[in-house]
């Protein structure tokens, strides 16, 4: 099933960018002809030479077969618009930043949002939660990048507490030292905060709704009637049951972290995968688009497989049903 999903997504990945009547070589040469040694009248000739070099002059079906073979070996080849840089190198350079920023902030937002939503659903008469919840809902309606701009204005430009942009200082040289680690964290505060603040509410809303639903279930009434302690009811009965849809949503969300962060990366000049994908789409750099989307496809497919495997641990009913069935 996993292979079928990856093949289907990979096939769409190949054909969809080709629907646009664009040639990446011509696009790149046009861009370069504006400012460098490409003769403005020789774009066609150079374009033909590079089309042959990248095999773009071959029939589409031949290119598709080559593509399938390359993807099966995880060989993404050369980037067209960044030749002779390999797509794998581009992804390897961008991935740590995306993982560092997006995975950590997504998990932090997931944990905080889930706990907050659970608490808000459980203790509906708490004054603190009544104030906090709407505030967080408001933040969740604001896009990451807009929140980022507001944070830059107040906390970086006005207060000067944080740097305006970048992954580390302009002149600093990356090294294994506490000082540099502190600098990286300092630069990561505003982009992280913009993502966490904007997404925490999404998780909280979902979890709150699930907790309210679960509270109406018969087994909750039965557990309460048995005289179980409230914390046990909350953790073992209410949260555990409400967590399942959240976990599924998290797995699907992992597939969105790249495109979701494009504008954050641009606003903060953060060197992640999102802006790499955007650049590649703008110039129709097919190998780079294929490489990144293929990685995303694999990420989502494997995440879903992992969730399927983890589900029985979270919910014994799934395991029992499976055994009985």
């Amino acid at each position: 099933m996993l292979l079928a999903v990856v093949w289907a997504a990979g096939t769409l990945n190949f054909f969809i960018p080709r629907l646009a009547p664009k040639n990446p070589i011509a696009e790149k040469l046009t861009q370069m002809a504006g400012t460098s040694g490409v003769d403005p009248t020789k774009i066609q000739e150079m374009s033909d030479a590079f089309n042959a070099k990248f095999g773009l002059d071959r029939p589409l079906w031949q290119q598709y077969l080559s593509y399938l073979g390359d993807m099966a070996q995880l060989d993404f080849g050369y980037s067209i618009t960044k030749y002779p840089v390999q797509v794998a190198d581009l992804i390897a350079a961008a991935l740590p930043w995306t993982l560092g920023l997006m995975i950590s902030t997504t998990l932090i937002a997931f944990v905080l949002g889930t706990l907050l939503g659970a608490a808000a659903g459980w203790k509906r008469n708490s004054r603190t939660l009544q104030i906090l919840s709407p505030l967080i809902m408001v933040f969740s309606a604001i896009p990451f990048y807009l929140l980022g701009l507001v944070l830059i204005y107040f906390l970086a430009a006005k207060a000067g507490w944080f740097p305006i942009s970048g992954g580390h200082g302009i002149v600093s040289i990356p090294e294994w030292s506490w000082e540099f680690a502190r600098e990286i964290l300092h630069h990561a505060v505003l982009p992280s905060l913009s993502i966490i603040l904007a997404s925490i509410g999404i998780w909280a809303i979902g979890m709150r709704g699930m907790i309210v639903n679960v509270q109406g279930e018969d087994y909750m009434t039965f557990a309460e009637a048995k005289g179980l302690k409230p914390w046990r009811l909350f953790l073992r009965y209410s949260m555990r049951n409400a967590l399942l849809p959240q976990a599924t949503a998290l797995a699907l969300y992992l597939g969105h972290i790249v495109n979701g962060a494009v504008l954050v990366e641009i606003v903060f000049s953060y060197p992640g995968l999102g802006s790499l994908l955007l650049d590649s789409i703008k110039l129709f750099d097919f190998p780079t688009i294929y490489g990144i989307v293929f990685i995303l496809t694999l990420t989502v497919a494997i995440s879903m497989l992992a969730i399927d495997l983890i589900y029985p641990l979270l919910d014994p009913r799934v395991r029992v049903k499976g055994l009985n069935g």
Partner: peptide, 29 residues
């Protein structure tokens, strides 16, 4: 710092994409 010249260049992306390419005649330079 007072012996360092710092230049901020407008490139196509938030970061350099052609890292390690110093070929004057490459179309992607």
């Amino acid at each position: 710092r007072n012996r360092t010249l710092i230049v901020a260049a407008n490139v196509e992306a938030p970061v350099y994409r052609n890292v390690g390419l110093a070929n004057p005649y490459s179309i992607n330079n």
